[in-house]
Design a protein around this nucleic acid. Sequence first.
RNA 1: CGGGGCGUAGCGCAGUCUGGCUAGCGCACCUGCCUUGGGAGCAGGGGGUCGGAGGUUCAAAUCCUCUCGCCCCGACCA
Length: 560
Amino acid sequence: MRFSRMFIPTLREVPAEAEAISHVLMLRAGYVRQLAAGLYIFLPLGWRVINKINAVLKEEMDAIGAQEISMPILHPAEIWQQTGRWGAIGDEMFRLKDRSDRDMCLGMTHEEIMTWLASREIRSYRDLPQVWYQIQTKLRDEARPKSGILRTREFLMKDSYSFDASQEGLETNYRLHADAYHRIFERCGLQFMMVQSDPGMMGGAVSHEFMAPSPSGEDEVAICGNCGYSANVELARSKPPQNEPQDWELEEIHTPEKRTVQEVSNYLKLPPSFFLKSILVIGSDGPVLALVRGDQELHEKKLAGIIGDHRPAQKAEVKEILGVEAGFIGPAGQSVRMIADNALKDGAYVSGANKPHYHLRGVRAGRDFSPEWSDIHTAKAGDSCVNCGNPLSVEKVIEIGNIFQLGTKYSSALKAHFLDENGEEKPIIMGSYGIGPARIAAAAVEQNHDKDGIVWPVSIAPFDVEILPLNVNDKNTVETAEKIYTGLKEQGLDVLLDDREERAGVKFKDADLIGIPFQVIIGEKNLKEGLVEIKDRKSGETVKIKTEEVPEAMEGRFRS
RNA sequence: CGGGGCGUAGCGCAGUCUGGCUAGCGCACCUGCCUUGGGAGCAGGGGGUCGGAGGUUCAAAUCCUCUCGCCCCGACCA
């Protein structure tokens, strides 16, 4: 491809709207343009990257026996109503009506439609297993699209769905997908990890996420460097550092106007970890007092996993339900439902005394209050691993893929049944598996760039080699460039020839910005000695070689 | 949806508080000359409903009201 004829609108300056590094670089290097919030155009370079990623996806999916199909994006509401998601999903679903006033929606995922197909076509255990996938557009009316192509309202997704006759079959397909995902992300040159995740509204019991560490990531994972435990902080369990044992007698302490843990902590000169934080929430079955240690944060989702949807109590409600104003509440003597974090099982604590301007020192679980126990705090760096005790670290990550064991949630709802060996009718056991190609691209840029621009992993770069004839008015330079260009193409490489009539500096800057892995630099002076340079974009290393050695040198770089 | 910021040429911005000449600067773009190893130089040139609507005023990019859009933080996120 000739640079002069390819649409590569590079920018010298950073567009004001871009914040995330991948966003800035992909705009500047001419890979994408924004149409509206969360809607992106992929320009020729960007689309080449996506296609390279998709090719890897297809190879690896085909390799585990998955079959590519294509589903509509426009869906009838009826099927979504049958699984209950028409009602369960809120504003995030794009909804519309067709000309005959029939409710429709735009597909945000395809469990429903895939299961609908299975329900009509699969009759017998002999038809199973099946694994179907597609690489296709999803639409979600995100509350807040952000970070360029990391979170958009319309995006491509490789989604696959497995259909099995048994749990063992599901587990096999789940493992096959996990293995394929490892190969995919490795081939795409990403640093990544597989972590336990919360299945959320997808339903099902087991799920994992594939996470690429990056400061632009929206998620956080807790990682144990010792035993390998890793999980999204949404469900990561941890043990906060233990307190020194105290032999406090139960005693009321006057704490005038001191309400928050921080205030009382300063006042009593006692670290927050010796406090017991009481948080009253209102659930669907009434008020619940959540108890966490003073240095920990309550995790809403973990609590929701136990009591369901809930909201914080208002000040008036606190007084009405517990008989004391907020800031001085504590578990001792209260009779509402209590859920306490495991960290509070041992030791003595300071809590509110349920009496204005007083706190209680020496409160002990079992003696002074008897809650239900669970892990409801947010895991944070420095907490200990629940498996091995090693300190956990917490990292920001981009979610690049996920896998779910769905079970029979969708097959039961849509009557996707099969007859087993005994002639018994059973729901198909399903799994679903997703990867976002654009997120792979963005994560690759986040993880591979320098001050000059993008440094693409070879496997997903838009081109393998860029040729830079520095002076296109020099006949010898042009002829050499053309010869090398033709030769490399014949070798099967994707080659970009910067044939523009630009000064050398401009070509160097653009080449580094665009980030193609190798540059062949053709300058007049070297050429007089029959030499050209090959630059490795990643290391910055340059070697001079004879013109006729270029094909061999490039072959060597791509053979490995 | 809550909080904050921004909207002036393709991009980056100044001008807005304190209304007043023909709306300005850098880059990009076009023409010519020149130059060709890290975003050159000189000369000339094109490009603007100042996000939109309404209002105040002799006069509005600037003040007022409404509205649309984009970004960031939070909530949300199948």
